[in-house]
Simulated scan of single mutants.
Amino acid sequence: MDFNVGDQVDLIIVNETPLGYTVMINGVHEGLLYRNEVYVELEDNSKHTGYIKNIREDGKIDVSLRPQGFLNVIDSDVDKVMSLLNESPYGYLLLTDKSPPDHIRYHLNMSKKAYKKALGHLYKQKLITISDEKVALVDKK
């Protein structure tokens, strides 16, 4: 096996299991995509780009649909949040860091943890304000 953690691979969804989805990696190796890391609808035989998350001691491979590592993921999450804020007519979202995880998952296709990290990044750059009711762009008029 010539994979390293973080490698980009081609995935084919084989079937759904209680833990998640069995996948074929590059058409050769079997892997597992955990259910709690999937934020989109997946169908059997659908093709996706994935990333090697972990190669276990028993030789089994865990994969993810998202790049591994904070720096690889934060940029795309920040871009997604900024895009939604810029598309909003009033420059705000009614999803805050206190919103239920299922609301964030439904509207943004990301985990609450990822959303909060993106908000923290934008807040530190002084691009947004966060209140109990909304997240708003600083300079949107």
Results as ranks from 00 to 15, higher is better:
residue 3 F to R: 13
residue 4 N to W: 11
residue 6 G to E: 12
residue 6 G to R: 11
residue 8 Q to L: 06
residue 10 D to S: 08
residue 12 I to C: 01
residue 13 I to R: 07
residue 14 V to H: 09
residue 15 N to V: 04
residue 16 E to F: 04
residue 16 E to T: 07
residue 18 P to E: 03
residue 20 G to T: 07
residue 22 T to N: 05
residue 22 T to A: 01
residue 25 I to F: 00
residue 25 I to R: 08
residue 27 G to K: 14
residue 27 G to D: 12
residue 28 V to Q: 06
residue 29 H to S: 09
residue 30 E to K: 01
residue 33 L to Y: 00
residue 33 L to A: 05
residue 33 L to E: 04
residue 35 R to L: 00
residue 35 R to G: 01
residue 36 N to Y: 04
residue 37 E to M: 04
residue 39 Y to Q: 05
residue 39 Y to S: 09
residue 40 V to D: 03
residue 41 E to R: 00
residue 42 L to S: 15
residue 47 K to L: 00
residue 50 G to H: 02
residue 50 G to I: 12
residue 51 Y to H: 13
residue 51 Y to R: 09
residue 52 I to H: 02
residue 52 I to P: 09
residue 53 K to P: 03
residue 54 N to I: 13
residue 54 N to Y: 06
residue 54 N to H: 12
residue 56 R to W: 02
residue 58 D to V: 11
residue 60 K to S: 15
residue 64 S to F: 01
residue 64 S to L: 09
residue 67 P to Q: 08
residue 68 Q to D: 04
residue 69 G to H: 08
residue 72 N to Y: 04
residue 72 N to R: 13
residue 74 I to P: 00
residue 75 D to V: 11
residue 77 D to P: 06
residue 78 V to M: 14
residue 79 D to N: 12
residue 80 K to Q: 08
residue 81 V to S: 01
residue 81 V to L: 03
residue 82 M to T: 04
residue 85 L to F: 08
residue 86 N to R: 10
residue 86 N to A: 09
residue 87 E to L: 15
residue 87 E to H: 14
residue 89 P to M: 07
residue 92 Y to P: 06
residue 95 L to H: 02
residue 97 D to E: 11
residue 98 K to H: 02
residue 98 K to A: 12
residue 101 P to S: 10
residue 101 P to D: 02
residue 102 D to Y: 10
residue 103 H to R: 14
residue 104 I to W: 01
residue 106 Y to R: 11
residue 106 Y to P: 05
residue 107 H to I: 11
residue 109 N to Q: 15
residue 109 N to H: 14
residue 110 M to A: 00
residue 111 S to T: 13
residue 112 K to E: 01
residue 112 K to Y: 02
residue 113 K to H: 12
residue 116 K to T: 03
residue 117 K to I: 08
residue 119 L to Q: 07
residue 121 H to M: 08
residue 122 L to K: 08
residue 123 Y to H: 14
residue 123 Y to K: 15
residue 123 Y to I: 06
residue 124 K to L: 14
residue 125 Q to V: 03
residue 125 Q to C: 07
residue 127 L to W: 01
residue 128 I to L: 07
residue 130 I to R: 10
residue 132 D to N: 03
residue 133 E to C: 06
residue 134 K to N: 09
residue 135 V to E: 00
residue 136 A to Y: 03
residue 136 A to R: 11
residue 137 L to R: 09
residue 137 L to G: 06
residue 137 L to C: 10
residue 139 D to V: 14
residue 141 K to G: 13
residue 141 K to F: 02
